[in-house]
Design a protein around this nucleic acid. Structure first.
Lengths: 154, 154
DNA sequence: ACATACCTTACTATAATTGTCAAGTATGCA
DNA sequence: TGCATACTTGACAATTATAGTAAGGTATGT
């Protein structure tokens, strides 16, 4: 039941982009450096994010990426769905009825369906704005957070 | 974000066991036949389920497995957690702070944490009794269900 | 033109998952 | 006692998905 690192990276990168863009485009190089995500890997992610119309690109020197919409109009669920192949927890939810037959299968089907809806619902209830708001309140690398588990190590 | 087939099989097998056990032990052979799950694979699953104290085994001829508790006291979340390595959506939730450092990571951390709680909460809100109750109302292989996607194919 | 930075495809290594094989142990029954 | 049933357990192979790398291309501002 693991989320791919693609999805984790994508959300982190989007938060980073959102935090450090002040109108101007942010280059992947910057994000790569700050978030310690391989540049080539980021490029792949942003290729998808662009296709998903979550970001816009500006080419050439001084270029980079810009949010396609307001922070508050970009849901975390969207980001995840865009870079992840599928968000649904089991295969037969996407493919239709092929792998779903008699016996206990139909019964469990409804469970997975419900689960999928909850997951999507939760992730769609959070926007980039929610995340960046928190960040701006408590600056990066800053002092205290609830449990001390997220301190910088370097 | 896929659930392993292990987890899917385990829940299905438990529903099957619950449905067809009437006090007596149910052999894996039976479950394997009805649910079309490889016998050896089932054995592995039930090894874990037994360790997780969700089922009890009866050895010898006429033996098999029995629910360790009442249907209503067995949560789907338990079953999944028992056969799945981990239920949490990202690694740094289990391992502690090792992979969680500065920048946008802490922020997204809370998102994944929330997601994990929702997933667990939902799966724990459903018991075996909920599933079998539905099954007994609408017998296996039966006629109509909401969308017609779960009909027997054979 | 040249540097920057996006764009795109292809590939590889690694890990997880799925499923198989095989050999054992406990038990009930004739 | 001996046999059949069925659980018990560990090792292993095949498949697949993921993560990450590499390389070359295209657009654009100075």
């Amino acid at each position: 039941m693991r989320l791919s690192t693609r999805a984790q990276y994508a959300v982190r990168a989007m938060v980073d982009l959102s935090l450090y863009s002040e109108g101007r485009p942010v280059s992947l190089k910057e994000i790569s450096r700050r978030e310690e995500i391989p540049l080539n890997y980021l490029e792949q992610l942003f290729f998808r994010l662009k296709k998903g119309q979550i970001v816009t690109s500006v080419r050439g020197p001084g270029g980079g990426y810009v949010l396609a919409r307001q922070e508050s109009a970009i849901k975390v669920g969207e980001i995840v769905e865009t870079v992840e192949e599928q968000l649904s927890p089991v295969a037969c939810l996407d493919e239709g009825d092929r792998s779903c037959r008699r016996g206990a299968r139909c019964l469990t089907h409804t469970v997975w369906q419900g689960l999928g809806e909850r997951i999507k619902g939760f992730l769609d209830s959070i926007t980039l704005a929610d995340l960046t708001r928190e960040a701006r309140t408590r600056p990066a690398g800053g002092g205290d957070n609830e449990k001390g588990v997220c301190q910088p190590t370097g």
